[in-house]
Amino acid sequence: MNPDDRKYTREHEWVLVEDAAAGMALVGITHYAQDQLGDVVYLELPQVDAAVGYLAKMGEIESVKAVSDLYSPVSGAVTEVNGRLAHEPELVNNDPFGDGWMLRVRMSAPSELDELLDAAGYEAYLGEL
């Protein structure tokens, strides 16, 4: 269920390296996260060019029920924000690993990826929750 082409945080974000040479990666939240949140209605995300930090707060995600912090899986600079989410936040529920992506980031420290969980490790982690 969790794609094995990407890495995961224990806070239920994912990072997918699109272009290792250029250090470009996509960031989003997992199926488990969106399922826990329920219907997503609002996202507060950083702007283009903003800096994000490894496991540092990068924004907020709000469902009908509650609001939660979002943490960046990697350090870097935001190069693109998924503009569709402003009007279609339900994409996070419907396609968390695809159209529901949140940020495109130019990574400043790709070695941080080694600290994150792979899909199998994340599955095992979910099993402990």
Binding site: D35, G38, D39, V64, K65, N93
Partner: peptide, 20 residues
């Protein structure tokens, strides 16, 4: 359903989704 603790009980907080 997703079950959550509420008032000393395990209760369903949602099935298909709150909005629906």
């Amino acid at each position: 359903a997703r079950m959550v603790p509420f008032g000393g009980w395990d209760m369903p907080v949602q099935y298909a989704g709150v909005i629906a």
